[in-house]
């Protein structure tokens, strides 16, 4: 009996998977680039004012603020929304007819945001966000879940903060 090279590689990969990938907590090369996108300075602003603007901006965008610590300069918030598209059921039905299998579609999204407001006079606001998506069968969509890196997302949050600060100034 001969065992092909592909079989050996396949078994090695499976066994490798069983041991689990090593956990990595080292900084990667993109950290400075990411930090630049996810940070904006609100120089000259009072720290409490910025914290209030941050929580206001998050609420404007549909988040629920879960945690605020003014001494640390931390704001954490979460939001959940339905992301199922109106045509999904029709598409599911079409695919069911074609393939005989019911295909799961994205249904629910959860976003967690944390903002760190610096003590320094630059008043840097550093945001991180994580997203999780679940299909309509209740299963987590692993490949679409994880760190949010789209610059537009952070841009929108910062713009919303600027608006909140502007509104506060006008009051």
């Amino acid at each position: 009996m001969t065992i092909s090279r592909m079989h050996v590689i396949g078994v090695a990969l499976l066994l490798g998977g069983c041991s689990g990938a090593p956990l990595d907590l080292s900084l990667d090369e993109q950290v400075a680039e990411r930090r630049a996108v996810q940070t904006r300075s609100f120089a000259g602003r009072d720290r409490i004012e910025v914290i209030i603007a941050a929580s206001g901006a998050l609420r404007d965008l549909g988040f629920i603020v879960e945690e605020i610590d003014d001494e640390l300069g931390l704001v954490s918030a979460v939001t959940e929304r339905n992301i199922s598209e109106p045509g999904n059921q029709l598409l599911q039905f079409g695919l069911l007819l074609l393939t005989g299998q019911l295909m799961a579609m994205p249904e629910r999204e959860e976003l967690w945001v944390s903002m760190l407001i610096s003590e320094s006079p630059q008043r840097d606001v550093y945001i991180t966000c994580e997203r999780k998506i679940w299909n309509d069968d209740g299963l987590l969509v692993v490949e679409s879940s994880g760190r949010v890196e789209q610059a537009e997302f952070y841009q929108r949050l910062f713009d919303s903060m600027s608006t909140a600060l502007f509104v506060e100034d006008e009051l």
């Binding site: 907590l25 990411r34 610590d69 931390l74 760190l116 994580e130």
Partner: peptide
Amino acid sequence: QDLGFVIRMGD
């Protein structure tokens, strides 16, 4: 945050 964590709680 640099490591991609979201801070859930801080005191």
